[in-house]
């Protein structure tokens, strides 16, 4: 370990007057040097006030409740990217249908894709655009939901803001 820091260095450190490199170097020294850490604490004007604060105690049943809760099977939420991915796929599908219109529907029927679903809309009283509209509404809802989740910050990692 290098030699101890001088009081003027510790005071400058406490006041935030060291430059970045000096502050980091001093912090690393303080992490490893109990004498300097104790000294900087005595130079801290807030030190005596911190010493007067009584630490709160955890509720007595906290551990028991946590152990009990840990035994309940966990409900795993789907990560937000699943929703974003779903929204994107549905948007592409909707765009595909909207752009190609009737030809897309005809192609889907020919290859048997969604035959069961499409057959329900084969009635002459229901406009042929209905499946397209349903997919578009579904895709729009999924995309809006995904955007809301992303904007709420859940996909941005741990931040306070």
């Amino acid at each position: 370990m290098s030699s101890h820091l001088h009081d003027f260095q510790l005071q400058a450190f406490g006041r935030g007057e060291l430059n970045d490199a000096e502050a980091v170097s001093a912090a690393m020294h303080l992490d490893e040097c109990p004498q300097c850490a104790a000294r900087v604490a005595t130079l801290d004007p807030f030190g005596p006030v911190f010493a007067q604060i009584v630490a709160p105690r955890a509720p007595k049943d906290l551990v028991a409740r946590a152990l009990q809760a840990a035994d309940v099977p966990e409900i795993v939420e789907e990560p937000v990217w699943v929703e974003v991915g779903l929204g994107a796929v549905l948007l592409v599908a909707a765009a595909f249908l909207v752009l190609l219109g009737g030809d897309a529907l005809k192609a889907m029927v020919e290859i048997g894709l969604f035959a069961d679903v499409l057959s329900r809309f084969s009635s002459p009283w229901i406009p042929s655009m209905t499946p397209m509209l349903l997919v578009a509404i579904l895709a729009g809802s999924a995309a809006l939901f995904a955007i809301r989740r992303v904007r709420s910050g859940q996909a941005l990692g741990p931040r306070w803001s």
Binding site: P34, A37, A38, D44, G47, A51, V54, A55
Partner: peptide, 11 residues
């Protein structure tokens, strides 16, 4: 428990 001004370095 009361707090001190800096980290305790020993148990």
């Amino acid at each position: 428990m009361k707090y001190s001004g800096g980290p305790p370095r020993t148990p």
